[in-house]
Each structure stands twice: as structure tokens, then as C-alpha cells.
């Protein structure tokens, strides 16, 4: 495929003896949004952590923008500027202000001009309604606010591709919407390529171009979003959708 961003082939992952990912194959093209669904412990988080080098894998290949990824500390460090990731545990750096949290990557890693980045960060903060908190420390923010900042921090690096690992799972219910809206905007307005692990089924249904359904470390379905939610192929997926009660 011409505008293929990422391709995963025959990826296998073990924790010691435990085989957690079995022969994973899929690819994602520019602007596409994939949601990764499946029961707890099915390997969703492990899979997307492999995609930016936080987990090593035993066999298989990852190709990013038509170049094979040779897994090394240096290569991953370079790639992570293009592959943004946001985690469940919204870990802002508590020793830095909101602004410094966001500026760290663009100015220290990418060595961009401080004033330019500042201007851009202001814009981003305005978009997520948190401009007033720019000089606050993370401990002064609510969970939802922290998570929005964590997303801005990842976006400030101008990634080509974003990974979201259950970013709303540890938020209070009233905070969830605000965070999901930002992700939705990324899909709608910026045409961002994304892989999203989530348990918010309504959201997944709304945003997914494609669904990968993972169970016990294997991809059981790789189908367009609409089809998955209306008419999943496998019994396991049917069962899963029923159990989610949405």
C-alpha cells in the first residue's frame, strides 16, 4: 500500500515462558483509526507498547514508513518522536510545570526554537481549554486535566502516528468525555493516524475505521468498524460485545 504508515508482520512476544502475543499481522495507512478491542489480559496494551519500543519482542518485524525498524535504544529514541504515545496513568512529570512538561520534548529532543514552540503550545493549550493552567504544577490538576495535558505533550512533537493506551480507564466518569473529544478532534480535523486501546465502546464505534479484536494474544478479527459492531464474524467477538453492555 502506498501510504502505509506501519506494518506489523509475524510479531511474537513472550514474558519469560509465557506466550502473550501470537503471530500478529496488520498494517495501518495514513489517516486511519484503528481501535484495539478485547477482554482484559488479551494483550492489547502489550501490543501497542511493542509499537514504540517499550516492550521488546522475540520474532517478527515492524515496518514504519516503509523502513524496517531495527530495534535498538537509539532507533527507538528517534522513532518515538514520530510515534506519540499516551498512557492510562497520565504521568506528567511532577517536577515540571505544565508548560515545561510540554516543552521538554520539542526543545530538548528536537532542539526547536523555544519561542516558536511556546507559541504553538499556547495554541494547543487553548484548544484543550487549559491555557490558564500553563504555569501550574501537575499536582494542582484533576485527572482529566492531566490526561489532556499528556495528550498535548505528545502532540507537541508533531507525531505522524499516535498510540492511546486506555487513556480514560483511570479517570472519573465526568472527565472521560473531555479527553475523548480531543481524540475525536484529532481524527476529524487533523486526520491523525491512530491506534486506540479502549473500553469505551460507544467511542470506539464512533471513531473506528477498523477494529482489531484481540483475544488471548491473537488477532481474531480485523474488520471495518461498522461491520464489527453490527455483525462480528467470530463467536468470541459476539460474546465480547454482549458482555460490554453498551
Amino acid at each position: 500500500m502506498a501510504n502505509e504508515v506501519l506494518k506489523v508482520e509475524h510479531l511474537e512476544k513472550y514474558y519469560q515462558k509465557k506466550h502473550v502475543l501470537h503471530d500478529i499481522n496488520f498494517s495501518i495507512s495514513k489517516g486511519e483509526v484503528i481501535t484495539l478491542l478485547g477482554p482484559s489480559g488479551s494483550g492489547k496494551s502489550t501490543l501497542i507498547r511493542c509499537l514504540n519500543g517499550l516492550e521488546d519482542f522475540r520474532n517478527g518485524e515492524i515496518t514504519f514508513e516503509n523502513k524496517k525498524v531495527v530495534p535498538s535504544e537509539k532507533n527507538w529514541q528517534q522513532l518515538r518522536q514520530k510515534i506519540g504515545m499516551v498512557f492510562q496513568s497520565y504521568d506528567l512529570f511532577p517536577n515540571l510545570t505544565v508548560l515545561d512538561n510540554i516543552m521538554l520534548g520539542p526543545t530538548k529532543v528536537q532542539k526547536r526554537n523555544v519561542d516558536e514552540v511556546k507559541k504553538e503550545v499556547d495554541e494547543l493549550l487553548k484548544k484543550v481549554d487549559l491555557l490558564d493552567y500553563k504555569d501550574a504544577y501537575p499536582r494542582q490538576l484533576s485527572g482529566g486535566q492531566k490526561q489532556r495535558i499528556a495528550i498535548v505533550r505528545a502532540l507537541a512533537l508533531h507525531p505522524e502516528f499516535m498510540l492511546f493506551d486506555e487513556v480514560t480507564a483511570s479517570l472519573d466518569p465526568e472527565m472521560v468525555r473531555g479527553v475523548l473529544n480531543i481524540i475525536q478532534d484529532l481524527a476529524d480535523q487533523d486526520d491523525m493516524t491512530m491506534i486506540i486501546v479502549t473500553h469505551e465502546m460507544n467511542f470506539a464505534q464512533q471513531i473506528a475505521d477498523r477494529v482489531l479484536f484481540l483475544k488471548d494474544g491473537s488477532i481474531l478479527e480485523d474488520t471495518p468498524g461498522k461491520k464489527f459492531f453490527k455483525d462480528p464474524t467470530t463467536d468470541q467477538a459476539k460474546e465480547f460485545l454482549q458482555s460490554m453492555d453498551f
Binding site: 514504540n52 519500543g53 517499550l54 535504544e73 527507538w76 529514541q77 528517534q78 518515538r80 518522536q81 506519540g84 504515545m85 499516551v86 498512557f87 496513568s89 504521568d91 506528567l92 512529570f93 511532577p94 517536577n95 515540571l96 521538554l104 520534548g105 530538548k108 529532543v109 528536537q110 499528556a150 505533550r153 505528545a154 512533537l157
Partner: peptide, 30 residues
């Protein structure tokens, strides 16, 4: 220092030196 701090730092492309310099050491100091 929580493991997530390290991972968040790596995820924004920090090198090992930068991770220690800006994230881990300042938190360790306190």
C-alpha cells in the same frame, strides 16, 4: 521513581541522558 515516569519520558523521545537529567534525577533529589 515510578516506572511510568521513565516510560513517559521515553515516549516523548528523551535519550537516556535526558531522561535522567530532566525527569529521574530531579525527582530523586527531593
Amino acid at each position: 521513581v515510578p516506572i511510568h515516569q521513565r516510560e513517559s519520558g521515553l515516549a516523548i523521545g528523551l535519550t537516556r541522558y535526558q531522561l535522567y537529567r530532566y525527569v529521574l534525577v530531579p525527582q530523586a533529589v527531593s
